[in-house]
Design a protein around this nucleic acid. Structure first.
Lengths: 214, 214
DNA sequence: TAAAAATTCATCCTTAAGGGTGAATAGAAC
DNA sequence: GTTCTATTCACCCTTAAGGATGAATTTTTA
């Protein structure tokens, strides 16, 4: 089988993270899942250099860094000089930091501690949102939160699909965003419906809203 | 035209309200809109008598009454002795009262000051919710809130339709709940889509969520 | 390594949804 | 008294969505 999937979605990611263990962890996850890590930056200077020299397609930014500029500053720099999606990697922060982070309009957030699935799903959804409309943020569901309330948890692909549906996309739009066929999307939707006890996209959205409230 | 609509939806409403001006106001609204006011009770005793003698199909209850039992007490009595939908008519109340009101699981709330449209729409949605599933409450959109953010406001029927869509109903289910044909529902949906800048029910729901946040 | 789960895709079929046009009726507004 | 809006409905057509079945491939897990 020609791995069309892999070639089309091998997207170069820059990781900006001062803790080597976390950085390597993320790097391993991504390399095993159709992403290519173009570089790891441990401080602001390395981040600026990587951005210029290795032209990543997306950036994962830890907010707290051991350097003069933190992740939010680097994000502001990206907004000024590039047209790139970026996600913040963050622990629970104070309100001020969250406010500052929102101002630079990130394509997504990854909250520590995170698991592989959440990381990959957040990244894929962020890329899709960025591609469609850089300005407005589509609200993102939390897979962990949803799965906690389901007898049978959603798989990563099912989760991404229902997220798109939650944000009003048609099956064809979801297929385009995920680089797979319409048939595949329909299979994911059908399986997700079983788990969500729904039989239409609007019913699924109602169920998702209920699950998010709990 | 045989007014099938009127005969099927001429529902008897009991109004429990100690302020005669408001009571007559509501009474007038309802009588002009395919509802029949079976009686007006100005205190608890009259309410109990009306419930027994005139067998209303639904009850609108002011919470604050000049009598030993208030609206919530009467609601509890209804729950115990009848199977009837009731709505609370309320001004801004203290938390305790709201907590008590929630315990008797009303089919809806009408908050003063209210206009004719909100009253009728709340009533119709409450009746529909009650008919479908007496136990769980479908979350209800606020027409005033939505309309405040639309260039062209939704009409009452359009609002009721999008409310049903928001709660996951199919067009056929909406038609059944509103006692009109599928064609009519489609017309309302199409017109609502224009106002909401949507072209599918899921997109409409996304827009409604956005409008409710503002 | 074998079994189970996840992901991908195809084909076929039925129904739901969306969209266009036209039109009758009733009520409100002017 | 005429115009405007809201509500209702019909007929038409196209596309989207939902559902069933079968199957190949990869990844994970036992």
């Amino acid at each position: 089988m020609p791995d069309l999937m892999k070639s089309t979605s091998e997207i170069k990611i820059l990781i900006v993270e001062d803790e080597p263990i976390i950085a390597r962890n993320i790097s391993m996850y991504l390399d095993n899942n159709d992403f290519k890590v173009s570089g790891i930056a441990y401080d602001d200077e390395e981040a600026f250099a990587e951005l210029k020299n290795n032209t990543p397609d997306a950036v994962i930014l830890d907010i707290n860094l051991n350097s003069p500029s933190d992740g939010i500053d680097i994000a502001a720099f990206i907004n000024k000089n590039f047209h790139l999606p970026f996600l913040f990697l963050t622990s629970y922060s104070d309100r001020e930091t969250i406010q500052r982070a929102k101002l630079v309009e990130p394509s997504g957030y990854i909250v520590k501690p995170f698991n592989e699935r959440t990381l990959l799903a957040s990244l894929e959804i962020a890329l899709s949102n960025f591609a469609q409309r850089s300005n407005q943020q589509a609200p993102e569901l939390k897979m962990d939160k949803i799965n906690r309330h389901l007898l049978s948890p959603l798989t990563e692909r099912e989760y991404i699909v229902v997220n798109h549906i939650y944000n009003g996309k048609t099956n064809n739009q979801v297929a385009a965003a995920m680089f797979v066929s319409l048939n595949t999307i329909k299979v994911h939707i059908k399986n997700a419906y079983l788990k969500l006890d729904a039989s239409s996209r609007t019913m699924a959205v109602v169920r998702l809203r209920e699950l998010m409230k709990k």
